[in-house]
Simulated assay, not measured.
Amino acid sequence: MDNQSPFEQFDELRIDASSKLFLAEAGKWTTFLAILGYIGIGFMILAGIMMISLGNSAGMYGKFFPMGSGLILGSTYLVLAGLYFIPINYLYRFGSNMKTAISSNNQASLTRAFEYLKSHYKFIGILTIILIGLYILIIIAAIILPVGAIR
């Protein structure tokens, strides 16, 4: 009796012509989205630097922007830009390796492309778990702490 799963019965998976077209199109779109992501990161870095440099200048602080808020907001933008870079970079590498794999029938590039796609989704998944945990902690803190203690 054979105890192999249906997936283990295949020595290799083959990519047919329609799958090849779908993967080529996915590679083009992910490269496009990654380039837009890099541009967004550039704007985030620019905004962060501007907030740090201009946020504490005369007349920029008051009731809504206390002294030092430019440094805090600008630093937050820079940290978020760095965090955003990781999945965007994985996405770009997936797209570029997928285009190379499809155009030259290169199995190593195809494997690397899927490795980068896996890393992209793994990073997004871990980040989502962390954010859900933070949301739960914030909700618990909002329930436990009195309203006056937050100010």
Rank of each mutant, 00 (worst) to 15 (best):
M1D: 12
S5C: 09
E8R: 08
F10T: 05
L13R: 15
A17N: 11
S18T: 13
S19C: 11
K20H: 13
K20C: 01
L21Q: 15
F22W: 06
A26K: 09
K28Q: 12
W29S: 11
T31W: 04
A34V: 10
I35N: 08
L36Q: 11
I39Q: 08
I41D: 03
A47Y: 06
A47I: 11
A47N: 12
G48N: 01
I49E: 04
M50N: 13
M51W: 00
L54F: 05
N56M: 02
G59N: 04
K63D: 03
M67Y: 10
L71A: 04
L71M: 11
S75N: 14
A81E: 00
A81V: 06
A81C: 07
L83M: 11
Y84I: 02
Y84G: 09
P87S: 05
Y90E: 09
L91C: 03
L91I: 03
Y92H: 15
F94R: 01
G95V: 01
K99S: 14
A101K: 08
I102Q: 09
N106S: 03
L110P: 00
L110N: 12
E115L: 03
K118N: 13
H120T: 10
Y121I: 13
I129F: 09
I130C: 04
G133S: 06
G133E: 08
I136S: 06
I140C: 05
A142L: 11
P146C: 03
V147W: 07
G148P: 02
A149F: 12
A149P: 03
